[in-house]
Computed example of a mutant assay.
Amino acid sequence: MLDHQLPPGKKLLIDQLSRELGCSISVVRESLFQLASERRVFYRPNRGFMVARLLS
C-alpha cells in the first residue's frame, strides 16, 4: 500500500493474503482490522476489506 503496489479500492482477500504471507487467517484478519483503525484500509461488513486512498 505504502509503495503503491496495491491501488486504492482493491479488494483484499484474507485467504489469499494468508497463503502469500504464510500465516493464519486469524492473524491476517486481526492485522487488517488494525489497518482499518488506522484508516489504511476500509472494512465493509459482508464485503470485506479494501485498500484506502492514502493522503500525502
Rank of each mutant, 00 (worst) to 15 (best):
residue 19 R to P: 01
residue 53 R to S: 13
residue 44 R to N: 04
residue 56 S to Q: 07
residue 40 R to D: 01
residue 24 S to Y: 03
residue 16 Q to I: 14
residue 42 F to V: 11
residue 42 F to M: 12
residue 54 L to K: 03
residue 13 L to D: 13
residue 1 M to E: 11
residue 48 G to Y: 01
residue 16 Q to T: 06
residue 51 V to T: 06
residue 11 K to V: 15
residue 6 L to H: 00
residue 54 L to F: 02
residue 25 I to T: 13
residue 43 Y to I: 08
residue 8 P to N: 08
residue 7 P to C: 07
residue 26 S to P: 03
residue 43 Y to D: 05
residue 49 F to K: 05
residue 22 G to W: 03
residue 50 M to G: 04
residue 45 P to R: 12
residue 22 G to F: 05
residue 17 L to W: 03
residue 36 A to Q: 12
residue 53 R to V: 13
residue 56 S to Y: 01
residue 4 H to Q: 14
residue 6 L to W: 02
residue 48 G to D: 00
residue 4 H to K: 08
residue 35 L to H: 00
residue 27 V to S: 10
residue 44 R to F: 04
residue 48 G to M: 04
residue 10 K to S: 14
residue 22 G to C: 15
residue 24 S to P: 01
residue 17 L to K: 02
residue 44 R to Y: 08
residue 13 L to C: 11
residue 6 L to Q: 02
residue 23 C to M: 13
residue 26 S to K: 13
residue 36 A to W: 01
residue 22 G to L: 07
residue 36 A to F: 02
residue 42 F to G: 04
residue 56 S to K: 07
residue 32 L to G: 01
residue 41 V to Q: 01
residue 4 H to D: 11
residue 49 F to I: 09
residue 25 I to A: 06
residue 31 S to Q: 10
residue 23 C to I: 15
residue 55 L to N: 08
residue 45 P to E: 09
residue 25 I to R: 13
residue 54 L to P: 03
residue 5 Q to L: 12
residue 25 I to V: 14
residue 40 R to H: 04
residue 46 N to W: 04
residue 8 P to R: 04
residue 17 L to I: 14
residue 20 E to C: 12
residue 18 S to D: 02
residue 55 L to R: 09
residue 11 K to W: 01
residue 27 V to Q: 00
residue 54 L to I: 15
residue 37 S to Q: 07
residue 3 D to C: 10
residue 13 L to G: 03
residue 4 H to F: 08
residue 24 S to Q: 10
residue 23 C to S: 10
residue 14 I to G: 00
residue 37 S to C: 02
residue 40 R to I: 05
residue 44 R to A: 06
residue 27 V to H: 03
residue 38 E to K: 09
residue 13 L to H: 06
residue 46 N to P: 00
residue 36 A to M: 08
residue 7 P to S: 13
residue 44 R to T: 15
residue 17 L to S: 02
residue 39 R to N: 12
residue 11 K to Y: 06
residue 35 L to K: 00
residue 21 L to H: 08
residue 2 L to Q: 09
residue 30 E to V: 09
residue 47 R to I: 07
residue 50 M to H: 06
residue 9 G to T: 11
residue 10 K to I: 08
residue 10 K to L: 11
residue 13 L to I: 14
residue 13 L to Y: 02
residue 41 V to H: 02
residue 31 S to P: 00
residue 10 K to F: 10
residue 12 L to M: 11
residue 30 E to T: 12
residue 40 R to P: 03
residue 21 L to E: 09
residue 41 V to N: 04
residue 36 A to V: 12
residue 8 P to Q: 03
residue 33 F to V: 10
residue 46 N to Q: 13
residue 7 P to V: 14
